[in-house]
Design a protein around this nucleic acid. Structure first.
Length: 461
RNA sequence: GGUGCGGUGGCGGAGAGGCUACGCACCGGCCUGCAAAGCCGAGUACACCGGUUCGAAUCCGGUCCGCACCUCCA
């Protein structure tokens, strides 16, 4: 089976051939931790998590590294505003980020390096770039000279000159070229800083990923992931830095072989932005929807397509998850999937075609239908479904609602009302029975008359 | 102005020269005291205009519209 992956460097679907099939290596640009994670962050994490799960069906050893950016101007700003220490902000939001992602069943990366722990590596890298004249010092900043790298612009398909007219680039006067970027900048007294050959300062944004990916994975590695918005300038600059360490004309693929970018999330058709106040936080959504529901929503369209986030998409996923869980209840412990691995089926074939999740979902739906028709007697089907859900990362059991936040008193009252309704039903006093159903509904208690008696659920999901 | 991605039924969303996915909603039927769930069934589609072809939603040319990036952003 071959895995096809769309490579944004060549702008084509490519057959995935690892650098070393015994050690497949993937890097993803992680979050800057100064705020709660939003749906956009979540999409990147979930999609990358799926990529890793799929790669693991083919390759035994897959090493996944995704960083935490814990030094950045936005963090400094946030700390100033809150009047707390930088570390208080970063450690708080790092924890929240990982917790939120865990709720979405995103596995932790094998290594989650923090930028501040790799300052030494960054300095060494910058020194080399200064030495080989890829970078220059100006106004106490170390700046990368974009003109020195032959392939600058290949990833984003931009030539330096054509985008300047009409763009919003403001050229800092200490730069030789407008798109030159900062590798190292001086820090003020009250800003975090490290001693360096250029005085006390801190790294620019891009160098951290070059340093951490090199250190944790060794270059060239296989896949570099991130949101589309990172293609320019972040990834373009990463390529320039990392490749310039080797040679001025070093091919971009000598850094990472494939580039994997997920599409943007909009909110009700609009870009999520602070000014519009429409940033959807994972943390908030988890109060209303379960992890699997959010995860399924994020995977319901192809990862490269734009995704418009709305209540509708969540409600739709919620129904689908509910439907799955109903069927699943009957087959609970039928087959142990732990040590099984069968990857020659339509579901996996869809995923091997550049992670076609909608198609894979369609296959899964078909299996659920078959299973219902064969009254859960087909062991192979049960196995396939369980494996598929595992690869998708949908832990549906976790979705099952429990009536936990209900007090004993409420419980007694509810059960009393249900009993009352039972009596009314037996006496064919259906008007009273319906009244009781309505009353409970107003309390968000939903009744379900089954052959085994009436069961109830609060705010059913 | 430059770059990239799109416009598919009421909605979400794959596909990609003939077999017209899939899900949600809606409608009809079965079931049910009524609901819910489940089951069975029906319907509606490929932005526009040309062209190529026996045949185009799918290829080619043009037009219109949307989104994102070019500044921090996943």
């Amino acid at each position: 089976m071959t895995f096809l992956i769309y490579d944004s460097l060549t702008k084509k679907k490519q057959q995935f051939v690892p650098v070393d099939k015994n050690n497949v290596r993937v890097y993803a640009c992680g979050p800057t931790v100064y705020n709660y994670a939003h749906v956009g962050n979540a999409r990147m994490s979930v999609v990358t998590d799926l990529l890793i799960r799929v790669l693991k069906t083919i390759y035994k050893n897959v090493k996944f590294v995704s960083n935490i950016t814990d030094v950045d101007d936005k963090i400094i700003e946030a700390a100033k505003k809150e009047k707390v220490k930088i570390e208080d902000i970063t450690s708080k939001f790092e924890k929240i980020y990982n917790q939120d992602m865990l709720e979405l069943n995103v596995r932790l990366p094998d290594i989650q390096p923090k930028a501040t722990e790799y300052i030494k590596e960054m300095i060494i890298m910058i020194e080399k770039l200064v030495q080989n004249q890829s970078a220059y010092i100006s106004n106490d900043n170390v700046i990368f000279n974009v003109k020195k790298y032959k392939h600058y612009g290949v990833l984003s398909r931009r030539t330096k000159d054509e985008q300047i007219a009409g763009s919003r680039i403001e050229v800092a006067d200490y730069k030789k070229n407008p798109e030159d970027f900062v590798l190292w900048k001086p820090s003020k007294e009250d800003e975090p800083g490290w001693e360096s050959p250029w005085g006390r300062g801190r790294p620019g944004w891009h160098i951290e990923c070059s340093a951490m990916s090199e250190k944790c994975l060794k270059t060239p590695f296989d896949i570099h992931c991130g949101g589309v918005d990172l293609t320019f300038p972040h990834h373009e600059n990463e390529i320039a830095q990392s490749c310039s360490l080797v040679a001025n004309d070093c091919e971009p693929s000598e850094f990472s072989k494939y580039w994997f970018h997920n599409g943007f999330v909009t909110s009700n058709g609009e870009k999520m932005s602070k000014s519009l106040g429409n940033i959807k936080l994972v943390n908030d959504m988890l109060k209303e929807y379960s992890g699997p529901v959010i995860r399924l929503s994020l995977l319901s369209s192809h990862y490269r397509q734009p995704l418009d986030w709305s209540k509708k998409i969540l409600d739709q996923s919620k129904k689908n998850i509910l439907r799955f869980s109903k069927v699943l209840k009957d087959i609970e412990n039928k087959v142990d999937t732990n040590n099984l691995n069968q990857n020659d089926n339509d579901f996996i074939r869809a995923l091997y075609d550049d992670l076609n999740t909608p198609k894979a979902l369609a296959v899964l739906n078909g299996w659920f239908d078959d299973l219902k028709k064969n009254s859960s007697s087909n062991e192979n089907l049960v196995f396939l479904i369980k494996q598929a859900l595992q690869i998708f990362g949908l832990d549906i059991k976790r979705n099952q609602s429990t009536n936990t936040n209900i007090t004993e008193e409420e419980k007694i009252m509810i059960e009393k009302m249900i009993q009352e309704r039972e009596i009314a039903r037996k006496n064919k006093d259906f008007r009273k029975a319906d009244e009781l159903r309505e009353k409970l509904k107003e309390m968000r208690i939903f009744l379900d008359d089954t052959s085994g008696g009436t069961i109830w659920k609060k705010n059913e999901s």
